[in-house]
Design a protein around this nucleic acid. Structure first.
Length: 485
RNA sequence: GCCCCCAUCGUCUAGUCAGGCCUAGGACACUGGAUUUUCGAUCCAGCGACAGGGGUUCGAAUCCCCUUGGGGGUACCA
């Protein structure tokens, strides 16, 4: 057994909770569970412009909905808090001071305008790399301190060596070597005193005892800067694993415009949280036995970091999610499904009948959202359908008229219990005695009773509706067919 | 531009690290059939891929190189 892993998910509260966050959370949490460690939630709200408490709240509730809850976090605290970076400013300041004192970082007074100009010039000259030119590097401590005293706005930059290379290891992809000369003097503290991701992330991961950093591939190229930071601070490196990014159908990094990325969207569409988790897990991991439907506990048991997907660039395929969600819906005990549908949102007057209706609907559901439209006919007489629907293909109006007029008589033989078996017998007798094709008889009645050609099983639906409603609808259909309003 | 990652059916993938068991397996989707009371569900069948080129080897989807393609990064965003 491996030693307990402490892992984390570190979302930035700058918008809707993203499926990518959930995707990464799944593996972090699974590893923590598997090894008996802890899974933490840390809010990285160091971008004052874009961060919002509302977004943070949505992230928490979305992750909870997915049952990806955490052992330590901003809401529940923990031994290494606070877990919101905006509340840890003093810690970062201290670290920055240490780095400046040690000469591994330095204050930079360059204006954004100068930097923009510099970048533009470098681009225009076609330099093989663009980045900070080190203008403030050799300012000298005294001069820098003087400017700071005078209140000059400044940032703190990491002093990256001009030569040599930085090597690190990703547990999924092996060893990497980066040329230091190609690395920028990364900003560690912004002019507003807030840390950048790079500083805060390294400091917090260490202080919070994170052993495994599992995150998206977009971070891979900033790892060398982090390595330099860890080294400068004298902190040991955690394990690093970079997961491939989720993609749009056009293979670009998954984005709002081209795909629904908000966890809330999936919830609103009527996807089950366990199905979404399963689906997301499958994007990055496969079980040795090839099983595709598995629960989070299954994942915890089977997770093997070496089997994480390092190579492919998974495209988010809604069709497969639909299929999977249908499988989960059908696997749910009826009572549980009813509870989920109720939680999803059902008009109160419909709640009581859910228990009768759901068995008829269940096998054709892909999402919870389909329950409402598919069960409308149970609650309201069909209106507005095209009378032509009443006439099955290869049949004439006369056929439909005969069925609709005859059916009430056959219904008399159906006992007060109004059960499906008796109803089916009635339809069968009608077809047999009148010499009508059974399937077509069913279709006429189906349209009359439901207003649609695609419905749950007819006689079962009639049984739920009751004699009165069925008679009323069949009568209305007959009049409709005759052209009456 | 520069740096980095990646490359198996339309899509998600198994197989690649330890080359032969792969005339490449599974899933979704699609097509056909069975069943049925429509739709769906289910069962069966079918379609369908190792990006290209060089090596290494008795043997390569698997190892190496190049090309091409896709992606990420290149911010006082994360």
């Amino acid at each position: 057994m491996t030693s307990p892993a402490r892992t984390r998910i570190a979302p930035s509260p700058t918008g809707d909770p993203h499926v990518g966050t959930a995707y990464v959370a799944i593996f972090n949490r699974a590893l923590a569970r598997q090894t008996g460690g802890q899974f933490l939630l840390r809010i990285e709200d160091t971008d004052r412009e874009r961060s919002s408490p509302a977004s943070e709240a949505m992230i928490l509730s979305s992750l909870r909905w997915l049952e990806l809850d955490w052992d330590e976090g901003p809401d529940c605290g923990g031994p290494h808090g606070p877990y919101r970076q905006s509340e840890r400013l003093e810690i970062y300041r201290e670290h920055a001071r240490r780095l400046v004192d040690g000469g591994q970082a330095y204050p930079c007074f360059c204006t954004p305008e100068r930097l923009a100009e510099l970048r533009a010039r470098q681009k225009a000259e076609g330099l093989d790399h663009v980045g900070y030119d080190g203008c403030c590097r050799e300012l000298g401590r005294a001069a820098a301190a003087e400017k700071i005293r005078a209140g000059a706005p400044h940032v703190i930059r990491l002093r990256v060596p001009d030569a040599g290379e930085t090597v690190f290891r990703d547990d999924l992809r092996g060893e990497f070597t980066f040329q230091n000369r190609l690395l920028d003097d990364q900003v560690l503290v912004k002019s507003d005193g807030y840390p950048t991701y790079h500083l805060a992330n390294v400091v917090d991961d260490h202080l919070m005892g994170i052993t495994h950093v599992i995150r998206a591939e977009e971070w891979l190229s900033s790892v060398p800067k982090h390595v330099l930071l860890y080294r400068a601070l004298g902190y040991p490196m955690p394990h690093l694993l970079h997961l491939p990014l989720l993609r749009n159908p056009d293979r670009s990094k998954i984005s709002k415009r081209k795909n629904p990325v908000s966890i809330a969207w999936y919830r609103a569409q009527g996807y089950l949280p366990e199905a979404l988790v399963n689906f997301l897990a499958l994007m990055g991991f496969s079980l040795p036995d090839g099983r595709e439907l598995f629960s989070f506990p299954d994942l915890v048991e089977a997770l093997d970091l070496g089997r994480l997907n390092a190579s492919a660039a998974p495209v988010f395929n809604l069709e497969k999610l639909d299929w999977m969600n249908g499988e989960y819906i059908r696997a749910l005990p009826l009572k549980e499904l009813a509870a989920r549908v109720r939680a999803f949102g059902v008009p109160p007057e419909r709640e009581a009948r859910l228990a009768e209706i759901l068995p008829l609907l269940r096998e054709r559901l892909k999402t919870l959202a389909e329950v409402a439209p598919r069960s409308d006919f149970f609650f309201a007489d069909p209106a507005g359908y095209d009378p032509a629907l009443l006439v099955p293909r290869k049949c004439d109006r006369e056929f439909a008229r005969a069925v609709l007029e005859a059916f009430p008589h056959y219904l008399e033989a159906v006992g007060p219990a109004f059960e499906a078996a008796a109803l089916e017998a009635a339809v069968d007798r009608l077809a047999a005695e009148r010499g009508l094709k059974r399937g077509n008889v069913f279709m006429v009645l189906r349209v009359a009773v439901t207003g649609s050609t695609a419905t749950p099983p007819l006689v079962e639906s009639m049984a739920v509706l009751g004699r009165e409603a069925v008679l009323r609808r069949v009568g209305a259909a007959a009049r409709r067919l005759a052209g009456e309003p």
